[in-house]
Amino acid sequence: MIPAEFDYVAPDSLDAALRALAHGGEDAKALAGGHSLLPLMKMRLAVPTLLVDLRHVPGLRGAQRENGSWRIGALTRHADLQGRAELGIVGEATSLIADQQVRNRGTIGGSLAHGDPASDLPTILVAMEGTVSVRNSAASREIAAGDLFQDYMTTAIAADELITEVRVPALEDWGHAYEKFTRRAEDWAMVGVCALVRKGADGSCEDVRVAFTNMASTPIRATAVEHALRGQPLSSDAITGAAEQAAEGTDPPGDLNATPEYKRHLARVLTRRALSRAAGV
């Protein structure tokens, strides 16, 4: 499969890339690792007339700790983050994205900008209540995770804007787990669940966040589960009870792999597993 024809530029600065994007209009697309965009282009589901390759743009790579947060450059690859314990859930989840070859190319900014509700990092950003910095050639702004994902593969990022940085709280005293159910090892999640749990000194659930992959047209928080568990003792019974609320407020799309009802079942099971692991129960 061959993509449709397009023009190609590889600017050597962020400003030049933003100008090229602005000049190209709605049909221009930024290219990072290309592992979301190129498959769509090969199937002609995306037909951009201009690709602005970001591979020569400096300064958008790597993860830096600043106060209580991690600042991660948009062009940082999954392979640069995978398995790094100091990054908490980001290190865990990035090691589960697709396969090693994909992780060697795919970037955090590319995955978030793509906004596929079946991909993993949007869920992680929503659970962590992170933000992205975006820029166009005139200005920059911050978008909170809760405002970023608007609909299926639709984000609040304008056509002339690029994500430059992802910022997530370190959440060092939180337990974390990402549970992902796939039909084949490298597939997108049928359902994924991110659980973050902060245990109080008395063993109770001081705070909790749960978010889902592929349970709606965007990544979503499982607020009913969070309400049910917050303040409760972190027992196996309490976790199982809270996880029973997992499907509430979800609208999972049915697909070749799973009906909506099966996804709701998976959400309950995976929520219990993720919460148990995050809470160390």
Binding site: M1, L31, G34, L38, K42, D99, Q101, N104, R105
Partner: peptide, 26 residues
């Protein structure tokens, strides 16, 4: 030809990639 099977895997700068999903210009 859909980034799934890995038969096209080569190394670029020492790391494995699926060469059906990398543009030659990249």
């Amino acid at each position: 030809d859909t980034t799934s099977c890995g038969a096209c895997t080569v190394h670029v700068d020492g790391e494995a990639v699926k060469s059906c999903t990398v543009l030659a210009v990249q």
